[in-house]
Amino acid sequence: MSTASGAHLETAELIEARDGRASDGCREHLASCARCREELEASHQLRARLRALPASSPPRDRWPEVRRRIAGMRRRRRVGRSLFGLAAAAAVIAVMWGGAAASERAAGEREIARLRAHLAELHEQSQLLDAELRALSTRSTTNAQAQALILLEDGLERIDAELASTAPKASAGELGTEALVDRIVLWSGRLELQEIMVQVRHTPLRIGAI
């Protein structure tokens, strides 16, 4: 802005003024400058026109796909919970067999520690594969390889988005059993995709078999 020097307001200042956040200097300038008042009015009009643009609608019904993926998500959770239930039961039995007086809660805590360790292991393996894929990315690829890799990368991105959205700020140490199981399922899927990507990078002639 250069109200002090008598020049006109800048676009950012006009937007601030339009949104009711003008500084004292801007207000004074607007009171005395017809051109800036016109610009301010134009900014109001532009916003009104943007808001009046017709809304677009989805070209097809995506609910069946959403429903399928929600059902898949729940299935994975159920499987994860059953696995966790079995593992927890096994841990309790192991404790009883050894004659130890540890409580069921302690067994659960050990199971959580086991899940955390498993998650860390998956994470580490995934990082190793990331490094390998980065190294392989300099190699030239056939069209078929490139197409397959794009599809696989899309799958990887979806998993990464799910990982980011399920517990974006929590470290593995703060996660409960359910969240740990969810993340183990996701990381296992990520690892599988990465392994296929390495395979695709290495074996261009067998692409059709994957």
Binding site: A55, S56, S57, P58, P59, R60, R62, V66, R158, A161
Partner: peptide, 26 residues
């Protein structure tokens, strides 16, 4: 409708907006 319209304004391609619609409701 509102979710798709918002996504359509941000994404470059309509198919990306559809993906966003889907991911949003998941």
């Amino acid at each position: 409708g509102v979710v798709y319209d918002l996504a359509r304004r941000i994404c470059r391609r309509p198919e990306d907006a559809e993906e966003v619609l889907q991911e949003t409701f998941i």
